[in-house]
C-alpha cells in the first residue's frame, strides 16, 4: 500500500497533472511561509550583488548551501510533504530533521548574516532602533553557549513530550509554532556553530566552546532517539487517533521516527564537530603562518 493508491481510487479520479501539482501545493496555505521564504531569499540574493559590487568574494558554495537549505525547509513546511508530516510520526521526525538540523545548518553555512547585512547596508535602510533592540536580545540569549545548547535540546524534548505533542498535532496555531520554533532555533544555533569569522571579531563563542556545545547537545539527542526507538508502547498515540496517511503499523511508525530522531541528527552533530575542527586547524595554521612571517622579517 503506497500513498499513491489513495489518489487512484475511482472516487477521486483526477488527471495526472493535477496529482503532480498537488505534490507542490501546500497542504495548508501559510502566509508566514509565503512571506518569509521569498523575503530571505531576495535579501540574500541582493546581498550577493552588494558584496560583489564592493569587490568581495561570493563564490558558488555558500549560495548553493543557503538556497538548498532554504528550499528543503520550504518543501517540508509548505508542500504535500507537510501532509505526511501531520499524519505519520516518522515523516514528522523527518520534517524536524530538516528544519532543525539539515536545512538550518545548510542555510547557516551560506553565511546569511554577511549577505543579509550587505543587502540592508546597501539599501541604506535603517531598521528602527526599537526593532533591532527587540530582535537583538533574544538572539543574544539564544546564542549564549549554555542557554543556546539547553534550548537546542530542550525544544526537541519539549515538543516531543507526549501531552504537548498531542496538543500541537490537534491545534493548527500550535502546530505552526512548533515547526517555526524548531526552524528558527536550529538556524540560530547553527549560525553560531559554523560561523567562519574569527570569534574575537564576531563576539560568538570560541571554537573550543562550540565543540563543547556540540558534544553537550549530542548525548541528550541520542538518549531521546534511542528511547523512542526502543520503546514498546505507543508513545505518540495522536497519529492513531487522527489516522495515518497510509496504513503502517504504529510500532513501525514509531520505530522509524525514533531512528530519525537518533541517527541522522547525531551524524549532523559529528559533521558540525568536523567543521569546527577544520576551523580550529585553519586558525592555528594562519596563526603559525603569521608567527613565521613575523620571525622572518627582521
Amino acid at each position: 500500500m503506497s500513498p499513491g493508491m489513495v489518489l487512484s481510487t475511482p472516487a477521486t479520479t483526477r488527471r495526472k497533472s493535477q496529482v503532480l501539482l498537488e505534490w507542490f501545493l501546500p497542504y495548508r496555505f501559510s502566509w508566514l511561509a509565503v512571506t518569509f521564504f521569498p523575503l530571505v531569499a531576495f535579501l540574500y540574493a541582493a546581498g550577493m550583488l552588494a558584496v560583489r559590487q564592493r569587490g568581495g568574494h561570493v563564490g558558488i558554495a555558500r549560495p548553493l548551501a543557503f538556497f538548498v537549505g532554504l528550499l528543503l525547509c520550504y518543501i517540508v513546511l509548505h508542500t504535500r510533504f507537510d501532509y505526511y508530516g501531520q499524519y505519520l510520526f516518522f515523516m514528522h521526525r523527518a520534517q524536524h530533521l530538516v528544519l532543525h538540523h539539515v536545512g538550518a545548518m545548510l542555510m547557516a553555512l551560506g553565511d546569511p548574516v554577511l549577505f543579509w547585512g550587505a543587502a540592508i547596508a546597501k539599501s541604506g535602510l535603517r531598521l528602527p532602533r526599537g526593532v533591532t533592540a527587540v530582535l537583538r536580545f533574544p538572539v543574544a540569549v539564544l546564542q549564549h553557549p549554555v542557554i543556546g545548547s539547553f534550548v537546542f535540546v530542550g525544544i526537541i524534548y519539549f515538543w516531543l513530550t507526549p501531552s504537548i505533542h498531542f496538543d500541537a498535532m490537534l491545534s493548527h496555531p500550535l502546530y505552526l509554532l512548533m515547526n517555526w520554533s524548531m526552524f528558527i532555533d536550529g538556524l540560530l544555533f547553527w549560525l553560531v556553530i559554523v560561523d567562519r569569522r574569527d570569534p574575537l571579531v564576531s563576539g560568538l563563542p570560541r571554537h573550543g566552546t562550540r565543540l563543547a556545545m556540540i558534544l553537550g547537545t549530542l548525548v541528550p539527542q541520542i538518549v531521546l532517539g534511542a528511547y523512542i526507538t526502543f520503546s514498546r508502547s505507543d508513545i505518540y498515540d495522536v497519529y492513531s487517533v487522527c489516522g495515518r496517511a497510509f496504513p503502517i503499523l504504529p510500532e513501525n511508525d514509531q520505530l522509524y521516527g525514533g531512528l530519525l530522531t537518533w541517527i541522522p541528527p547525531a551524524m549532523m552533530m559529528l559533521l558540525a564537530a568536523l567543521i569546527v575542527l577544520s576551523m580550529i586547524m585553519k586558525a592555528s595554521r594562519e596563526e603559525s603562518g603569521e608567527i613565521q612571517a613575523g620571525t622572518a622579517s627582521p
Binding site: 481510487t9 501532509y83 487517533v241
Partner: peptide, 25 residues
C-alpha cells in the same frame, strides 16, 4: 482537515472490497 484527521483507501481485493483508514476519535 479541519479536525486534523485524514482518511485513505486500501487496495480492493478480488471482490472489490477495500478498507478505509480513518481517524478513530
Amino acid at each position: 482537515k479541519r479536525y486534523r484527521t485524514t482518511f485513505s483507501y486500501g487496495e480492493p481485493d478480488e471482490h472489490g472490497f477495500y478498507a478505509v483508514s480513518h481517524g478513530i476519535a
